[in-house]
Amino acid sequence: MKSTILSSALLMGSLWLTGCASSGVKNPSGVPVTRLNPDEQGFVAGTGIESQDLVAVADKMARSILAIPQIANAPTPPVVVLDPVENKTRFPINKDIFLTRIRAQLNSRAQGKVIFLARDRMATLERERNLKREGAVTASADPQVQEFKGADYFLTGTLEGLSTRTRAGTSDYILYAFQLIDARTSAIVWEDMAEVKKQGLEDAAYR
């Protein structure tokens, strides 16, 4: 009887193995997203902008800005206004987050070498100033005097992407470029960039 059981088990096992439904499918379980250097040869195409990209890019830009002579050697701290980044990738994102992090990084590390203007709060600031002018609230200085500062520089940037999708997977290359533009001359006094390339392959059930 043992031989009977054994032969049954073998038969069942054979059926199981020969009937593997995923046979002939390359990477049926998919390949996890892998972060690569931009110059590294990838095997497929990629995914989107994530927090680690934001941190790396913003850190690099903040360090780079602090080193330029217009900031490092300025007799008085230059006044900078953030101009929204333009997103040219295929990924919808909260694009303000890059400039917000760069600004926070500079404010925390530059020790007053740069002054940023809160232009995104102008409506609130103007309302407060008007209240002071009307005498509705107290003022520590003459509210009739125009004290809102103008910009010496604009900090802005673009996010550009190259995307590829084939049966082998998805690949996305994103170029983050930031510029500091002289508000008086329109000269780009500083520019730097960072690149990220990612690629991934979803489970065969989604292909």
């Binding site: 009937g19 593997c20 439904a21 995923s22 049926p28 379980s29 998919g30 390949v31 996890p32 997203v33 995914t47 989107g48 990924f91 998805t170 991934g200 392959l201 979803e202 489970d203 065969a204 059930a205 989604y206």
Partner: peptide, 23 residues
């Protein structure tokens, strides 16, 4: 956008004894 890589539920959809709709 986060569907890349191994997914246990998607893997089950490929198994013999589960329909595709389990993914």
């Amino acid at each position: 956008q986060g569907i890349h890589g191994p997914n246990p539920e998607a893997r089950r959809a490929r198994s013999l004894f589960r329909p595709e709709s389990v993914k």
